[in-house]
Design a protein around this nucleic acid. Structure first.
Length: 478
RNA sequence: CGAGGUGUAGCGCAGUUGGUAGCGCGCUUGGUUUGGGACCAAGAUGCCGCAGGUUCGAAUCCUGUCACCUCGACCA
């Protein structure tokens, strides 16, 4: 009976229907809700708390590296957006336009920012005069709008929240170093805090950002084998600076254009966390960003002393951890299932038997391992278990990625692998965009990145057979 | 944007040849329970996605429209 009831209320299993599993989780873990605006969602308190934790960690790192936060306008005049040719071509099809103020038609329409390179450039043109003004290391936390045709919660929405860093540098080398430095910040954040293993690499020209000279990316693999671009860092050279007339007087008294970067991570990463770590019991959150790190579930809470002890533990632990005591009158079993759905990394059970023995029960979310720990030194036991959760999550994600990464040498192999085995495919490439297009057409895969860590698989391009230039990760992407 | 699917209570669904709406879960109140999604009793909750049309009468038939979900295309 209990089994059957559980089945009825469980989320769709990911093996049965991955897309539905994902939708079930975002709804049932109370991360978001749909609204009357197509593609725009309410991020509910529990979902937003995850984003706030992400913000706190990243923001501190940006500042540590010398970046300053600013706030740019929501709107971009059409003429400003149009200044850089590649950029406007890339974004024009997906911007929202404001044409009226009240009932009056605007003389120039305004787009709702899809990204803020143009606004930063306009401002930088004013505030940069001398090499002594450089570098300028600005960042903003905001939301942007891109009129997506198909939307999915967190993964692709019309409005989404992110941070966008925009920096200007005296030399190309400095700007390139910044691009790489910020990519590493993202990669370390994903691997160490979010327990998401990533591949660092460069995008092909076909996949790079509109207007960039080079786009770098960290790619993560989801449970279903699809790739998710989890963070991105662009090097612009001085292209935008020239288009926007950003100049400075150099050390040698000559008039120069500064070199620019931009880099961003968005709420899409929350989708990445869900699809990397989640399982058929719900969400699994990395301790670093979990709104609740430890949930205390009292057992037989009406019995004398139990609730008191639970409250005492809560007061003690909240100095060091994000902790919640659920003293509602739901049954313990209900609470176990509920906080598993919400992905709380560690559960602490305390009941009459435990109190008698001076212990409590800790249960890890990722592997459901149950351990009895004495109440003395509970903090260190919890810290230790949270670290084991993080480590276990990272290791299983890494093992899965390795198991689902294939190497192919011929077009035929590529097609067979892409058709039958979800995952990433490593293959050599000649560098020609025609081959990228053909692989998309024939095998349904796109280039995910040219990894920094190259391997030599063969001498020739998987597609055309001409001499290969580099090894590329191919796959299906979100 | 193309193909397919779904819109009925907070959630999941049923609703026959057209006759004015039901089930389970959840919710409220009271009681008994509590180490893996408890039980009993009594309640509350509906613009049947929206707008037209056909009809004496529409959740049901017709037209349009909107939203959501899948798979493509496009993009980040």
């Amino acid at each position: 009976m209990a089994e059957q009831k559980k089945m009825v209320e469980a989320i769709t299993s990911m093996e049965e229907d991955f897309a539905q599993w994902y939708t079930d989780i975002v709804k049932k873990a109370e991360l978001m809700d749909y609204t009357s605006v197509r593609g725009c969602m309410v991020i509910e308190p529990y979902g937003w708390a995850i984003w706030e934790n992400i913000q706190k960690i990243l923001d501190a790192e940006f500042k540590e590296l010398g970046h300053e936060n600013v706030s740019m306008p929501l709107f971009i005049p059409e003429s400003l957006l149009n200044k850089e040719k590649d950029h406007v071509q890339g974004f024009a099809p997906e911007v929202a336009w404001v044409t009226h103020g009240g009932s009056e038609k605007l003389t120039e329409r305004l787009c709702v920012r899809p990204t803020s390179e143009t606004l930063f450039c306009e401002h930088y043109a004013k505030v940069i005069q001398s090499w002594r003004d450089l570098p300028k290391l600005y960042n903003q936390w905001c939301s942007v709008v891109r009129w997506e045709k198909t939307t999915r919660p967190f993964l692709r929405s019309v409005e989404f929240h992110w941070q966008e860093g925009h920096t200007m540098h005296e030399t190309a080398e400095e700007a390139k170093a910044e691009t790489e430095r910020m990519l590493n910040v993202y990669a370390d954040f994903c691997e160490k805090q979010l327990a998401i293993p990533v591949v660092k690499g460069r995008k092909t020209d076909k996949e790079k950002f509109a207007g960039a000279e080079a786009t770098y990316t960290i790619e993560a693999m989801m449970h279903d084998g699809k790739a998710l671009q989890s963070g991105t860092s662009h090097y612009f050279g001085d292209g935008f600076a020239r288009a926007f007339n950003v100049t400075f007087q150099g050390r040698d008294n000559s008039l120069c254009h500064p070199f620019q970067t931009s880099w961003g991570m968005s709420t899409r990463i929350i989708g990445g966390i869900i699809m990397t770590h989640g399982d058929n019991n719900g969400l699994v959150l990395p301790p670093a960003v979990a709104p609740i790190q430890v949930v205390i579930v009292p057992v037989a809470q009406h019995k004398p002393g139990v609730l008191e002890k639970a409250k005492e533990l809560q007061a003690q632990l909240k100095k060091q951890f994000r902790v919640k005591l659920d003293d509602s009158d739901q049954t313990p079993g209900w609470k176990f299932a509920q906080y598993e759905m919400k992905g709380v990394p560690l559960r602490l059970e305390i009941g009459p038997k435990d109190i008698e023995k001076g212990q409590c029960v800790l249960v890890r979310r990722n592997d459901r391992e149950k351990i009895f720990v004495p109440l003395e030194n509970l903090e260190s036991a919890i810290a230790e278990q949270l670290e084991l959760v993080r480590k276990g999550m990272y290791e299983s994600a890494l093992a899965r990625r390795e198991n689902m990464t294939y190497t192919v040498k011929t077009l035929d192999e590529m097609k067979k692998t892409a058709d039958n085995k979800p995952g990433l495919i490593k293959a050599m490439w000649c560098g020609d965009v025609a081959c990228e297009e053909k692989l998309k057409e024939v095998a349904g895969v796109s280039s995910r990145c040219i990894p920094f860590e190259q391997e030599h698989i063969s001498d020739t391009c998987v597609c055309c057979g001409r001499p290969a230039k580099s090894m590329v990760y191919w796959g299906k992407a979100y």
